[in-house]
Write a protein that binds this DNA or RNA. Structure first.
Lengths: 123, 123
DNA sequence: GAAACTTACCTCGTATTACAACGTATAGTG
DNA sequence: CACTATACGTTGTAATACGAGGTAAGTTTC
C-alpha cells in the first residue's frame, strides 16, 4: 500500500490522514542517524510507504530547525550537489519522545474505533 | 490521556496529529448506530479520549452529508431541542471501510517508525 | 409568566498544514 | 558546451480544526 496521492482516486482524504504526522515521521527517521533532505524522503517511502513531496519536506525541516529541534551540517564532496545533513538536538529528542508517546495512545484509540468496521472483513 | 487542547502545553502538534482523522472517527462512530451531533462528540470523548469542538463536528457533518455519506433525520420530543440524527448511507459505509483499511495500514507504518523511539522507555 | 438555564444546532474568521509547480545551484557526461 | 542528475529552496493554493459567537426550543425557578 502506498500513502501518496493516488491518480486512480481523486479523493483527498488520504492526504488529510497524513497531515500532521509528517513532522513526527521526519523526527523519528532521524532518531538513529543523520540524514539529508532527499534521503529522508526516500527512507520514509522505502521503510514505511509514506510518500512525501520535496515541497513538503523542506518547509518542515526549516520549521524544525527554527524551533531548535534539529541542527544542520553541510557536507561537500561525495556526489554532485553538497548535502545538508540534519540531526536531532536534545530538545528534538525530547519532542520526538513526547510525540511518539502521544501518537501511540492516539493509534490505540483509532484502532479501537475502527475495529468494528474492519471486523466486517473477517467474515 | 486526553486528545484535546492541553492548557499545560501550548504546542499545537497534538491538534495537527488529529487533523484528517476526525472525519474517519465520526464515520466510524456511526457504524453501529444513529447518533446526533453532540452525542457523537460525547461518545468519541468517552470511548476514545478524542475531544472535538462543536465548531469542528458540525462542519464535518455538513460535509459528509453534502458528499452523500450520511443522511439525517429530525427527531422531536424526548428532550429540549429537537435532535438531528445522522446515519451512514451505503456510500458512507463503503467509504468508512476504505478509510479504515487505509488507516490500518498507516497505523502499522507509524508504529514501525516510532518503535525505536518508544523502545527507549522500556529500559 | 418572566428570567435564567440547558440542550442542541450552526457559522465565520483565523491559523496551520501539505504540496504541486517552479526556480536555483553544483557536478558529472557525451 | 549542452544535457542530465542530484539536491536545496520558495510561492501560491486548497483543505482542515476550532474558538468565538449566534439562534432556537424547551425546562426550571421565583
Amino acid at each position: 500500500m502506498v500513502f501518496g496521492p493516488d491518480p486512480e482516486r481523486p479523493d483527498n482524504w488520504e492526504r488529510q490522514l497524513k497531515k500532521g504526522w509528517l513532522e513526527l515521521a521526519i523526527l523519528a527517521s532521524l532518531w538513529d542517524e543523520e540524514l539529508y533532505g532527499l534521503d529522508i524522503l526516500r527512507r520514509l517511502e522505502k521503510d514505511t510507504d509514506l510518500v512525501l513531496a520535496e515541497g513538503t519536506v523542506y518547509p518542515i525541516l526549516s520549521r524544525l530547525k527554527a524551533d531548535g529541534l534539529v541542527s544542520t551540517k553541510w557536507v561537500e564532496g561525495e556526489a554532485g550537489h553538497p548535502r545538508k545533513y540534519y540531526s536531532l538536538t536534545p530538545a528534538g529528542r525530547r519532542r520526538t519522545v513526547a510525540m511518539a508517546r502521544y501518537a501511540s495512545g492516539f493509534l490505540g484509540s483509532i484502532r479501537k474505533l475502527i475495529a468494528p468496521v474492519l471486523a466486517k472483513e473477517d467474515k
